[in-house]
Amino acid sequence: MSLLTKFLFPPSLFVTATSLVSFSSLAIGGLSEIRGKHMQYSKFVGVNNNPVAESKKKLISSRTGMVLLYTPAFLAGLSSFAIFPDEGFRFFLLQSAITIHFLKRVLESAFVHNYSGEMALEATITILLSYFISSVIMLISQHLTMGFPEPPIDLKNPGILLFLIGIIGNFYHHILLSKLRSGKNAKEYKIPKGGLFDFVICPHYLFEVLIFWGFALISQTLYSFALALGTTCYLTGRSYATRRWYLSKFEDFPKGVKAIFPFVF
């Protein structure tokens, strides 16, 4: 028995192909962030882009854009309870985790976050499709495991723990960010403080990475692991770019504050 088959369900050709595509696209996206080609939302709208081309882009409010990002993935998770009923406890856990995570992001985007500007419609559609498609494929990949024996090493409980740590930590640091930008200077960027912001500039991304690894351990499919690894690569690149942006804007930015992994990177 190979090492992979000890903790993964055997993948189909569909799962293997989608895993490769998902990981590759996310890893390339992370590399693009490091190289300065940014997804056009948050502080990176218009950064290092052709001014003429930028002026032709359709922009929408950040609040609308962020709510749109997560709604289809939330609906995919919610509808899966009707589409795939009674497929076992592991499937129920994955459905619940996906639905809870994206519902939380919809509610945060609508009622918690403070925004400084607009968001490119093209970026909104790209990210929306990424979240929606990845959620659907996670669920389909899990459905395709029906009838196969469980992996000898059961990772559901560690997955639940990682998911809970991730979702609580992500929410807490989003609250800190919302409090940072309130009142008269709501649209001004400041150096975040408190929580893990004293160690990394993007702890909310770190906890989102944990959420996706929670999905992976709960699911134990090749696709969920490829998605978690790809998400780690993309958010690491985005965090690196964010730290570089703060260094360029604030002379007093603490040099010991890393991008995403405390004391490491």
Rank of each mutant, 00 (worst) to 15 (best):
Q95L: 09
S96L: 15
G117M: 01
F84K: 03
A53V: 14
S79A: 12
R90C: 05
V45E: 00
L107V: 05
A76Y: 12
T71M: 13
S61P: 04
N50R: 04
P51H: 03
P72T: 06
N48P: 11
K56R: 15
H113A: 03
S55G: 12
A97Y: 12
T99R: 05
S61F: 02
N114G: 04
I98R: 11
P85V: 02
S79H: 13
R105N: 02
Y41A: 08
K57A: 10
F84T: 03
F111T: 04
E54M: 03
M66L: 13
L93H: 11
N114W: 09
S80Y: 04
H113P: 02
T64A: 12
S109C: 08
P72W: 04
A97R: 11
V112R: 06
G117C: 01
F91R: 13
Y115L: 00
G65C: 03
L103M: 15
F111K: 07
E87F: 14
F74I: 08
R90N: 06
F74C: 13
L68W: 06
K104N: 07
F111Y: 12
R63I: 01
I83L: 12
R63C: 04
A73L: 11
G77N: 06
S79N: 14
Q40N: 00
L94Y: 08
I100A: 14
K58P: 08
N48Y: 03
P72L: 03
P72C: 04
G65E: 03
Q40L: 00
T99A: 12
L69N: 10
I100M: 12
K58Y: 13
V106R: 08
F74N: 11
